[in-house]
Design a protein around this nucleic acid. Structure first.
Length: 109
DNA sequence: CTTCTGACTGGGA
DNA sequence: GTCCCAGCCAGAA
């Protein structure tokens, strides 16, 4: 299993209405505290056919903001999807991680 | 093998 | 609060 696939699997486990940070994903898949960049890079290589099955839009940075400005789909679409899930954005386009951040557990919150 | 880059992060200005 | 700089991991050239 490649690092990419592991990232995708973890992202797929993010529950509806919740988000996870790149650093969090990185720690879960590789155990490295600073693998966040690699996670973003992995999602950057996310195949188009997996766009609909991997909730990449639930992955944001540690600041609670969207960093995918350079991504293909853009931050606008990501924000729109998150808002549809009930996630509220601040005036500075930030979310409250203390409320929406995924605890890493798929079974119980 | 070495070098570069990236949807990040944290600290300092 | 925002902006800029240096460091981290994993893959591609």
């Amino acid at each position: 299993m490649n690092f990419f696939e592991r990232v995708y699997e973890v992202v797929e486990k993010i529950p509806y209405g919740q988000v996870a940070t790149y650093g969090q994903i990185g720690w879960m898949v590789s155990g490295a505290p600073h693998a966040a960049r690699t996670v973003g890079w992995a999602l950057n290589g996310l195949p188009e056919d997996r766009i609909n099955e991997v909730p990449w839009w639930r992955v944001i940075n540690a600041q609670g903001r969207i960093s995918n400005s350079r991504a293909r789909h853009g931050a606008a679409e990501q924000r729109r999807r998150l808002e549809e899930e009930g996630i509220i954005f601040d005036d500075t386009d930030r979310t409250d991680l203390s409320v929406y951040q995924w605890n890493g557990n798929t079974k119980e919150a």
